[in-house]
Design a binder for these strands. Structure first.
Lengths: 230, 230
DNA sequence: ACCTGAACACCGTTCAAGT
DNA sequence: ACCTGAACACCGTTCAAGT
């Protein structure tokens, strides 16, 4: 009873959780650049210096915010019977999280040693093991998937930066496609060809296609090692 | 003759090329954070405002610096007889460039629409076509490789940030491995297992292994489409 | 122990003023 | 046309001072 009273805080007391929650709200509403210790302090009705009592610096704040989003993704990714499907679900979960919170993409690709990345790596690794990848190849397989996901994370994070005005995704893709179509045909034949497909393509499907490509590569590796053992 | 005189500039005149060259020198010597318009102006013995006559803003400056490094990589990547080898050489060229200039990694992963990225995509795409990938699958194959490369680019870019002190790569990997080894065995079995391999692993080899994994996936896709046509 | 908010040491960018 | 450099509008972070 006494301890309960001792540990009880005022309802409006500052907590790391409350700070992270407010940071996420600012990031989601107004984007990555809007997250400022001053803006955060104003939202929490406190001084900017007070935040440093609960959070070491801005990097820790962003890492904590990112971890909260990613942790929710990984607990949601229910275990599927086939490891391939589990990996697809996990990757799509991360994709959708980045789509909903573009700043998560930027943060994930910026700091690969943060806890959120480790969480994803663990999730992938478990499924890689379940897939029957030989132990010596598990590290490479998991990090390959990880790098692919982080690469796309960086891609989608820059989306909002590209559309300074109120351009939507389709308008952005169209303007990029138009720019690519005007490139020199001799120097950039491939990009010009790709430009024609850019407008009608689905980011999510393309992401999944990449995952499947890597999974196919991993499976042929398993098959080959099986041949060698046979 | 007259035009020659008219177009001739003073030897110390500011040029975009001179500015980019100085920016690369600062980035290489002192890292990404050291590149400041003030530092750049001081090195070029001019005012900070003068730079804006030749360069729109910092983003354009970084994109131009990155493009210079990447352009050199792509012209060096000689055409190999086998497209797979060409892709490996191209990817390793980018890897080595990022290794030599960590800021290039950060810039590449930050802005996927910059010209340097387009250059890489074109290089990959040409080899994807040479590989015989059916046209409808070329886009996915090329962007999958691209995302993987950009993902690793972001990874290595953060290297110098992680070593605030004079830690070398081995020391960093050892400290990360030590941290991972202390994680909860129940929650993070895979990362703990991977930690034991972390110290003795070769980044370059792991990168190449990832490329080969995706190439294997692409080749099985080709084989399957061949079956369908037969 | 926790909070305040002014102060410090920076940024990128602009712009009147010069040549 | 090109350059100067002070000024503007910010940052993250610190820290003496409060409760």
């Amino acid at each position: 009873m006494t301890t309960e009273i001792r540990t009880r805080r005022r309802a409006d007391a500052l907590t790391k959780e409350r700070i992270v929650e407010a940071a996420i709200a600012i990031l989601d509403q107004d984007g990555e650049d809007a997250l400022t210790f001053r803006a955060l302090a104003a939202r929490l009705a406190t001084g900017s210096g007070a935040l440093y009592w609960h959070v070491a610096d801005k990097q820790e704040l962003l890492a904590a915010a990112t971890d909260q989003i990613i942790a929710a993704v990984l607990t949601e990714a229910v275990s599927r019977p086939r490891p391939q499907d589990a990996i697809r679900a996990l990757a799509l979960g991360v994709f959708d999280a980045i789509d909903a919170h573009p700043w998560v993409g930027g943060q994930l690709s910026r700091d690969p040693w943060q806890y959120a990345v480790l969480r994803i790596l663990e999730g992938i690794g478990g499924q890689i093991q379940a897939l029957g990848v030989p132990e010596h190849a598990q590290f490479n397989a998991a990090t390959a998937l990880m790098s692919f996901i982080l690469g796309l994370a960086g891609q989608y994070a820059s989306r909002p930066r590209a559309c300074e005005d109120g351009m939507d995704r389709v308008a952005i893709l169209e303007s990029v496609a138009a720019k690519w179509a005007q490139l020199d045909p001799v120097e950039h034949p491939f990009v010009r060809q790709v430009a024609t497909m850019l407008a009608g393509h689905d980011d999510r499907e393309q992401f999944l296609a990449g995952i499947d490509l890597i999974l196919a590569g991993i499976e042929t590796g398993i098959a080959r090692s099986g041949d060698a053992n046979a």
